[in-house]
Computed example of a mutant assay.
Amino acid sequence: MDLRRDVFQAIADPTRREIIGLLARKTLTLNGVAENFTVSRPAISKHMKILAECGLVDIRQQGRERYCAANLQRLKEVSEWTDQYRQFWSAKLDQLEQFLNENKDNK
């Protein structure tokens, strides 16, 4: 049984979204990530654990340091899910625009 967390659960938290943003720009150590936040180091470690469990962050041990890097491929799942709604609403807004344009000329 796969106990990995859901990507949507991971990105629901603003701190985790900010961590992903940081790591998308560059690889950081756990301490390097923690230095960017006012919350405690244990709180950052918990966020990192969740991000790693859902596959959004890869953590590798190198010597005494643990290096963290974003794995943005998992965000594709989110993009595909939201795209279906983007297409739906774009079509609805196009229909509304067409309706308003047709009725504007009838006044």
Rank of each mutant, 00 (worst) to 15 (best):
S40A: 11
D6Y: 08
V57W: 00
F88H: 07
A91M: 03
K49D: 11
R74W: 04
R64V: 09
R66Q: 05
A43Y: 12
R16G: 10
S79K: 14
L28F: 04
E97I: 02
G21A: 15
I59S: 03
T29M: 07
R86L: 09
T82L: 13
Q84Y: 11
G32K: 03
K107G: 07
Q9V: 15
E35N: 11
S45V: 03
Y67C: 01
V57R: 01
E97G: 02
S40R: 10
D105A: 07
G63Y: 02
K92Q: 06
F88G: 01
N101Q: 09
L93P: 00
L96V: 00
L22R: 13
M1R: 11
G55Y: 00
M48R: 03
T82D: 08
D83S: 12
S40D: 13
F37C: 03
K107C: 06
L30T: 11
Q61H: 01
R66I: 00
T82S: 09
T38C: 11
D105E: 10
T38Q: 14
I50E: 06
L28V: 08
R5A: 14
E35W: 07
T38P: 07
I44W: 02
T38I: 10
S79E: 14
K26Q: 13
L3F: 15
K46T: 09
R5V: 11
Q98Y: 04
N101V: 03
L51V: 02
D58K: 08
N71L: 03
R60F: 04
K92T: 02
W81F: 10
R60S: 04
I44Y: 02
D105K: 10
H47P: 05
R66C: 01
V33R: 02
I19H: 11
F8D: 15
L30G: 03
A12D: 15
N36E: 13
I44K: 05
G21H: 15
H47E: 09
N71F: 01
Q9R: 15
N103M: 00
A10Q: 11
R66K: 07
A91Y: 06
